[in-house]
Design a protein around this nucleic acid. Structure first.
Lengths: 202, 202
DNA sequence: CCCGCGTCTGGACGACCGTCAAGACTTTCT
DNA sequence: AGAAAGTCTTGACGGTCGTCCAGACGCGGG
């Protein structure tokens, strides 16, 4: 029979799905979407490849589930900096610290995000989830910007949509350089943001 | 024996390589890197799949050659607008016209570019070519910006590297929306650029 | 105890992949 | 004309892919 308490069963299944999704994320971050097979994912977990179809209908559902879990981690990255900063300079410093830390610390995770976002341009099945995460990220940037404006007594000169796109473009260039082995990548991202940001909020 | 005049032979071979590269570009733009096989490419040409290894050592060289041909087309997109504009407003108008035209007219080609640029984050074999194209695009943007500054009697407030990253970020967001079927994608790109640009050059 | 169910393994399937080689066809030179 | 070189087709190769399935394993309830 199934588990005595249904809630427990759901939890157990959900936990295993989460476990497998974590292995999938790690694999995708290392190999990229184009080179990742289900056997690669299973090899990074403690199970065999067959179990993936026990917990997920197919590959698309597995990756979709991955992306959903990934989302939760990302979209709160700067919230602490927003909450603790008492001056505009402090906020910028906290933002830059966090941004460069994630650039050098988790570059593989970020290239995965860009990879999946690109896949959504080809594969409609990914579009809804990608758009949702993108919106979360945009709002996160929006919180930073509006707090900055508040602290500095100024106001944003551009919409938060545009702001997010701008910062994302700068970050993506830095990520390309970081992954190409450029040791100056983080520093020049810092410089570029400090160059651009004051122009857009003043 | 081979052709009588070696120059002709090279031309012939180069032409066929170009022909096959064009078919490859079309296929990649339609299917994306992850889903494109050599047989798909051959099917879009008038030859069979075996010929690809006659003209290219392997898949990587084929795609690399594609990307190199693609580069030539892209990096001069705004040059005419730069050359003909006599006022700053005219230049902006020409830039925006060209940008929105390419967004709605060749979205598949642009998603391919972003796809390949992302692949270079995983596959070192693509890095050199991608970096080279990115540099060409950056310089193209640089020409637009410096001409704008010249015409308007102002000066750029940020480096051309940052400028390129910013515009690229805006374009990428618009492309995502365009491919998701948003009919407002081009209009909001226009709006965003007009919002951001004056802040960065004034 | 053993039965039944949830869980997991490991192999098999057909399809597709990049690569390659044998040979047919075409063109060019002697 | 005959030979040789260049060009292209075809089919095969070993491998990997996503998917599926028969069965083994563990475990709690009859």
């Amino acid at each position: 029979m199934g588990p005595a308490v249904e809630g427990r069963a759901v939890d157990k299944v959900a936990q295993r799905r989460s476990e497998l999704a974590a292995a999938a994320l790690e694999t995708l971050a290392e190999l990229g979407y184009a080179r990742t097979g289900l056997r690669d994912i299973a090899a990074r977990s403690e199970f065999s490849h067959g179990v993936l179809h026990y917990y997920f209908r197919d590959k698309v559902e597995l990756i979709t589930h991955c992306v959903r879990e990934y989302k939760a981690r990302c979209a709160t990255r700067y919230d602490e900096a927003v909450a603790t900063a008492t001056t505009a300079e402090e906020l910028v410093a906290g933002f830059l610290r966090e941004q460069t830390a994630t650039l050098t610390g988790e570059p593989r995770m970020h290239r995965l995000w860009y990879d999946l976002r690109n896949q959504s341009m080809f594969e409609p099945a990914f579009r809804a989830d990608v758009a949702e995460i993108d919106l979360l990220l945009e709002r996160m940037v929006g919180r930073v910007v509006s707090r900055y404006a508040e602290l500095s007594g100024t106001r944003p000169r551009v919409s938060s949509t545009a702001f997010y796109a701008v910062l994302d473009g700068l970050f993506q260039q830095a990520l390309l350089r970081q992954l190409a082995g450029d040791p100056e990548a983080a520093a020049s991202l810092r410089a570029a943001v400090q160059e651009v940001l004051p122009q857009l909020v003043h």
